[in-house]
Amino acid sequence: MSTVNVWVVSADTRSERRIDPHISVEQLKNKLELITGVPVANQAISILSSLEDRSVVATLDDNLRPVGYYGLRDWHVLKVDDTNPSTSWTGQLTDVTQTDKFELSQEEYANRTDTVLAYKQKNKVGRFAPKSETEEVATAQVDIPIGSRCEVESTEPGLSKRGRVQFVGPTKFGTGGGVWVGVEYDEPMGKNDGSVNGERYFTCRPNFGAFVRPNKIKVGDYPVEELDLDEEEI
């Protein structure tokens, strides 16, 4: 067995990875620091049965042993806990319990005259603009199946933004109308959770969702990328 497919989860991340079971626990920790943000010295790694069954199969407690010694197999979960979160940012980026937020109901927002919404309504911009027959034809011509794997065009050289198509169609945001494609990325490289301005188009984890125009996306056999941080598999 050369590699196994596993889930790697931490307080702030969750992703699919391919692991070489012959590497040591110490080597694994060095790789996972760059993925989870948990420092090597703080990592406590457990193997769970699956995402649904969180029973502990083993604890990776010997840095010198190979990962395969602990019985790691396909679709096990590598759960990475931070034993000293006070020295890192672990969990702090997703914990909003200590943040004071200004809240405004949708009705209160809609009644204000100094908002972006009011401007768009007055000037017939975006979703308030009259829809043309051209836009309706363009919607019908988009052939991007929901559920298909895809790769989204990136402005950063060498960066692949892969994921799965979760939505295709018109939206209430954006100017010019037309079709948008909702993508759930494999990594947290998005801007939302499948909803925009209170309108939900699909559901995914925060910062894993994004909406792009059809010409920015390629549909095909784009597998989840392997963890290849120093030109070797883990």
Rank of each mutant, 00 (worst) to 15 (best):
D100M: 10
T115Y: 00
G91W: 10
S24T: 15
G163Y: 08
P157N: 12
D114I: 01
T97N: 10
T171D: 00
D53G: 03
L78K: 06
P223Y: 01
Q98E: 13
G220D: 05
W75M: 14
G169F: 06
V67K: 02
Y222T: 01
L60W: 08
W180V: 04
T113K: 12
N42K: 03
S86V: 11
E187K: 12
P223V: 01
K29W: 00
L104K: 09
Y185F: 15
K101P: 05
R65C: 10
R54V: 10
T97A: 10
G176N: 06
R162Y: 02
C150A: 09
E225Q: 14
K29N: 02
E135D: 10
S154R: 09
H22P: 00
G182M: 08
K120E: 15
V212C: 07
N5C: 09
D221C: 06
Y201R: 04
V125I: 13
V165S: 10
K29E: 00
S55Y: 05
T59L: 11
T203C: 06
Y222G: 01
S195H: 07
G126M: 01
E133L: 14
V77H: 09
E153Y: 11
F208V: 06
V96E: 13
K191S: 11
V168R: 12
R213Q: 14
K131H: 09
F211E: 08
N63C: 08
R14Q: 15
F211H: 08
E108W: 00
V125S: 04
D53P: 04
S24C: 13
E184L: 02
Q43H: 01
R112V: 00
A129H: 04
I144C: 06
G190H: 07
A58N: 14
D62R: 12
A140W: 03
D143V: 12
S10H: 02
P130H: 08
E187D: 13
D81Y: 09
I47K: 06
L104W: 05
T175S: 13
K120P: 01
R205K: 12
P170K: 14
S86H: 06
V80Y: 01
L48C: 09
T59Q: 14
K172P: 02
G194P: 05
N84E: 12
K191N: 13
H76P: 07
N207S: 13
F173D: 02
F102E: 15
